[in-house]
Design a protein around this nucleic acid. Structure first.
Lengths: 243, 243
DNA sequence: TGTACATCAGTGAACGCGCGTTCACTGATGTAC
DNA sequence: TGTACATCAGTGAACGCGCGTTCACTGATGTAC
């Protein structure tokens, strides 16, 4: 039986064979198994029966810990988001101790984007799982979705932009909505690098493209001299009409 | 029977009731039914049995026209891409007859982006269907995926960028890879407006956000004065290391 | 113009599959006495 | 310290579902003579 291979918390540590049918920490084990499936094969692979199979347990055992398949999936998705946050925090950590100057602020926005992009590329399955369902940015932060810092990916971006605003790298007027613009650009590249034509791009070119995109975002956030920008000609998203 | 309600090509046009079990143009009907499903409920709704049900035909009848479910889905996806191309062409048409000046070139890039974004927002189901599978930009254009102009969505973007380059709106050096940067930004906003937190945004704010994003892309494509840009501080995507 | 016939688009019935979920159960564990 | 017992985590069997796909068939159509 598969479950005999999984180390159990047991009082008699010399007993390697399963001496009880009590698992001990099935909830965590199920989430871990689900995350492995997500990592290997994406969100559609997170199938209740397969998750329990990997945990060495009968399918309905999952119902002791999750209301249904959806609840299990949500927990797996939260774990994927936490992994993503950690990837972003890794990049931030490379900047050294946080400072309150413009150089650090700009760099931290880049770091956040870099962590996001690399996570998408390296952990495609988890990335897709994180965005597999309709999702919202929760005003009440869920620690299950957060990294070491206690912030989830979106909050990490928000914090970096806040610092940028504090350091004068972004005008107060441009601050609002900035996360949407920045997130869009980076998210789009991530998606195209996963499902789209960019997925065949070698790492070097992917990194270079990421750099170029982050340049664009950086410039875009730093408003050009006011008044210098002329009204864009012709189409600037005229009102909607049915096609 | 549902199929009695569908007009049939028949010699005797006075016969409105079905006089034969021959459908006449099932292939097209199946694609149309599939596209309707995709439009209403996204790619996962494009289910062979449901498609044939809607066409008023028995499930295995589809196998006269498609090798399997995947082939049917691909045809539906192509139709979704064509609809998307048409949405982009609609925006281009609003600019009036094509010209070879910088103003028109810039406007056409915006128009392409605008058509893409509006299609994502208005025709969410079709948009998601277009990107439901791993996809590539085919070097050999498939007319099934094209709009009136014979160009598919990606080619429409490429053509607009080519014109921009011809008109001096983008340096030759920046031209290469420009579609990836531009596409990423717009694609990301589209995705967040579908599955993400931006899907609740009212039209007005969505349009305004789109405008801001297109501003950013426009500025990003027009290279800043060379040499003016200093090396970005600290993190510029340093080499990959395992997290 | 009429008749025989081959074609082949659509039918009808059936299959195996894996899924999520339910039910009544069992028996190791920890606790109360 | 020993025993009785309630708890509740995991079992075993079964369900209905809709799916994609297969098979042998039928009968309207268009064509050849």
């Amino acid at each position: 039986m598969v479950r005999d291979l999984i180390p159990m918390p047991t009082k008699n540590l010399t007993t390697t064979a399963r001496s009880t049918y009590r698992h001990g920490d099935l909830r965590r084990t199920l989430i871990a198994a689900g995350l492995t499936l997500a990592r290997e094969s994406g969100p559609t692979a997170v199938v209740l029966r397969e998750v329990t199979r990997r945990a060495g347990v009968v399918p309905n055992a999952a119902y002791r810990h999750f209301r249904n398949r959806d609840a299990l999936f949500s927990a797996v998705r939260a774990a994927a988001l936490a992994a993503m946050a950690r990837s972003m925090e890794d990049q931030l950590a490379q900047l050294g101790p946080p400072r309150e100057d413009l150089a650090y602020a700009k760099a931290s926005v880049r770091a956040v984007g870099t962590g996001y992009l690399r996570f998408a590329r390296r952990e495609t399955g988890m990335f897709r799982t994180a965005f597999a369902v309709l999702f919202d940015v929760e005003p009440t932060p869920d620690p299950e979705k957060a990294g070491e810092s206690g912030l989830n990916p979106f909050q990490l971006l928000g914090a970096a932009l806040d610092r940028l605003a504090r350091c004068g790298g972004i005008s107060a007027k441009r601050r609002s909505g900035a996360e949407h613009v920045a997130w869009s650009a980076v998210h789009g590249l991530a998606m195209l690098s996963i499902d789209g034509p960019l997925r065949r791009l070698p790492v070097k070119q992917f990194e270079s493209l990421g750099r170029r995109l982050l340049d664009m975002v950086e410039d875009g956030l730093a408003s050009p001299l006011p008044g210098l920008r002329t009204k864009a000609p012709l189409v600037r998203l005229p009102q909607v009409r049915p096609s």
